[in-house]
Amino acid sequence: MSQDDTSIATPLPELEGLTGAFYGFCKDGELRFQRCSDCGSWRHVPREMCADCGSWSWEWERSSGRGTIFTWTVVVRALHPAFQDACPYAPVVIEMEEGVRILSEITDCPPDELEIDQPVEVVFEDASEDVTLPKFRRVAS
């Protein structure tokens, strides 16, 4: 790939509908997931209905922000031009205390120090003027 490709912007979420609401909370420094008002089940990514009980009622409930590392990959060769300069980097799946899993990254951990079950907590990182991404850092177990 040519050098010019590194000028391609990092992809950002479209701030529409439920996705816009999720990232809106992140911009305010809050990690919130939908929680079913009828059966209490948490969900991520945002959905219109509860897949467990069929309910349309839900609230954006605040997450504890804590979870553990469930799995990850280490991207050594980028397959998207915007991430050329970031390699090696590690997309990480975090299992939150509420039970939902979220794809993110660990800001303070080199890829070779990642461990399954490592406790982490959410931090917020501005990706643009409009978008704040939920990321994570290690905490003592």
Partner: peptide, 29 residues
């Protein structure tokens, strides 16, 4: 579709070998 765009791509989780390798790692674990 939009789920990958909004919740994967911003974190550099952009392509099949990356998506599937997290399952492979979990299997190894």
């Amino acid at each position: 579709g939009a789920i990958a765009r909004d919740f994967y791509l911003p974190f550099g989780f952009t392509a099949p070998p990356q998506w599937y390798s997290v399952i492979a790692r979990r299997h190894m674990h």
